[in-house]
Amino acid sequence: MYDSVIDPTLGPAGDARGRTALAPRPGDLSGLRLGLLANTKRNAEEFVEEVAGLLESQHGVQKVLIRKKPSIVEPAPPEMLEELRAECDVVVVGVGDCGSCSASAVADGLQLEEAGIPAVVIVSDAFRVSADAMATLQGTEGYQYVTTPHPVANLSRQGVRDRATAAVPEIVALLRGPNVAPAS
């Protein structure tokens, strides 16, 4: 009857976001350009820097970029994402050591995967609940990330280094691993 009336609620194609497919994995990290995406939580930047140092010395990646998100709550802004996409082959995101930053870190990881960049998100174990909730909200239940014990903010630089060392094997596995869909 009124079929010619346009539905104003219909969003852009692909708006009803399905599961985010992970970006293809590189297999070998050697020679790849590494980007770091940190939030403003204390020790977040230090943590991803330590991870970068280890990935450089042990796996031959080359750190090319570190960006700090302006907001703890929000995912990285589009221009920051574009920069990472343009200049990096793999990205490490962290550290989700609070409710909102663990959730937004997962959103960042999924944004990067969607842009074709393999990414690994580091979340402190106290915040699995909010990280998982964000993954589900984004249509990607069961998204895998790397955890480190909470808290991170009170660690010394050596403490951060120890945590980074402990996390690296899992980070490498997720960056390099076979491109399997996470279990849902």
Binding site: C98, G99, S100, C101, A103, V129, S130, A133, M134
Partner: peptide, 15 residues
Amino acid sequence: ACEECLVPKPLMQSM
């Protein structure tokens, strides 16, 4: 408590 650390309300509701 850190004011910014709470997840956005809609996310908290969905949790």
